Amino acid sequence: MNRTTELFKSEAYLQNNLRLFVNRATEDFNVPFHSHEFIEYCYVAQGKGYHHIENETFPVHKGMLYVIPVGISHVFRPSTPGPAGEPLIVYNCLFDNYMVDRLSPILLDDPVQEHLKSLCGGNERSSASSYFNAFDRDGSIESIMQRLYREMSVPSIGSATMLLSLVSQLAITVYRLKYGDADKRSADAADFTNVIQYIGEHLSEPITLSDLSHISRWSIRHLQRLFQRHSGQSFGSYLQNARIHKSCELLRGSSRKVSVIAELVGYRDIDSFNAVFKKIVGQSPSEYRSLQGG
C-alpha cells in the first residue's frame, strides 16, 4: 500500500548540544506515517497496538524494542481508537550521527560503533532491511529508557555526561540482544574446536563428557548441545567414529597388530573394537587392512 510519508527533520527535535531527544508518548492516530533524519530507538512501555514499518505491520506489546534507521518510514498505532482501550505508550530516543561521533571514545567495541554508523545511512548496509526489533527479557532496556527520560526532563549537574553514558548503555544492551547470541555461537565454535582437538590427541585414553566439561568449563548439557550442533552426532557417536577413523589411518599406514591399534584408539577389549569397527566400516579390521593393500 502506498502511503504519503512526512519527513521529520533533525532541527525540529534535536535542539540541544548533544542532539538528543527522549520522550514518553501516548500513541494515537494523529501522528503521520513518517521517516526521519535521525536514528530512533522505540520502546513499548505499556499497552498494545501496531507498528507500521515500510510496507509491513507488526503487532506490538510491552517489552518490545524497535530500532529505526535514518530514512525508514514508520508509525505506531494503538489497538483501538479513542480513550476506551489501554493506551499505547512508547519511549522514544532520537539522535543522529553527531551523537554517534560523540559516543566513539566511549564505545570501544568496533562492532557496536559500526552498527550505529550503519543506522545513520550512507553505506550499503543501511536499507529497509536494517530496522529490527528485540524483546526486553529482563527489563534492562526499560530501566535505561526511564533513566534517559528522567535525565532529559529534569537536567542537573552532570546530565550531559550521564546522558552520553545512558545512550551508550542503550546501544550496547540492544546490540547484545540482537547479535549477542550470534557472537556467542561464534565463540562457542572457536572454543569447541579446542575440545575436538583434545579428543583427537587423547583417543587412547578414556574420555568422558565429565572430563570435557572440566577442561572446557562448559556444563555437560551444553557440551551435548554443541556436539549435536557442530557434528550432527551425540558425544558418544562422535567419539566412537573418531576412534574408528583413527584406527583406519593406522591400519593403512602401519604394520602394527590389530590389538595394538585397538589400544591406541582407546579400546582395551579387542572383541568390542572388532564389533564396533565392523558396524561402522562394514568389514573387520583385518579385512579392511587386506583390501587397503596393507
Score class of each variant (00 low, 15 high):
Y43W: 14
V44P: 10
A45S: 14
A45H: 10
Q46H: 13
G47R: 01
G49S: 07
Y50N: 10
Y50G: 06
H51Q: 13
H52G: 06
I53W: 00
I53L: 02
E54K: 05
E54F: 01
E54W: 03
N55E: 14
E56A: 14
E56V: 13
T57M: 02
T57Q: 03
T57C: 02
T57N: 00
F58I: 09
P59L: 02
V60R: 06
V60W: 01
V60Y: 03
H61I: 10
K62P: 00
G63T: 01
G63D: 02
G63R: 02
G63V: 01
M64A: 09
M64C: 08
L65G: 06
L65Q: 14
Y66P: 06
Y66A: 12
V67E: 08
I68H: 00
P69H: 05
P69E: 13
I72M: 08
I72Q: 07
I72C: 12
I72R: 06
S73P: 10
H74V: 04
H74D: 02
H74I: 09
V75I: 09
R77Q: 12
R77M: 11
S79V: 05
T80W: 06
T80K: 11
P81W: 01
G82N: 06
G82W: 07
G82K: 10
A84I: 11
A84D: 12
G85W: 05
G85V: 04
G85P: 06
G85Y: 04
G85D: 14
G85E: 15
P87T: 01
P87N: 05
L88M: 11
I89P: 06
I89F: 03
V90G: 01
V90M: 07
Y91Q: 05
N92H: 10
C93E: 03
C93K: 03
C93V: 15
F95G: 12
F95N: 12
F95T: 09
D96V: 07
D96K: 07
N97T: 13
Y98H: 15
Y98I: 14
M99E: 05
V100L: 00
D101Y: 09
R102Y: 09
R102D: 08
L103Y: 04
L103N: 07
S104D: 09
S104W: 05
S104A: 15
S104H: 10
P105H: 05
P105R: 02
I106A: 04
I106G: 06
L107T: 04
L107C: 01
L107N: 02
L108H: 11
L108C: 08
D110F: 08
D110W: 08
D110Q: 13
P111Y: 04
P111I: 01
P111L: 01
V112F: 01
V112W: 00
Q113V: 11
Q113K: 14
E114T: 15
H115K: 13
L116K: 12
L116A: 11
K117N: 09
S118A: 15
L119M: 14
L119V: 06
C120V: 09
C120G: 03
G121V: 08
G121A: 11
G121I: 07
G121F: 08
E124Q: 13
E124D: 08
R125A: 05
R125S: 11
S126G: 13
S126Q: 08
S127I: 07
S127C: 15
S129L: 13
S129V: 03
S129M: 04
S130Q: 07
S130N: 15
Y131M: 07
F132S: 07
F132P: 10
F132A: 04
F132G: 05
N133S: 13
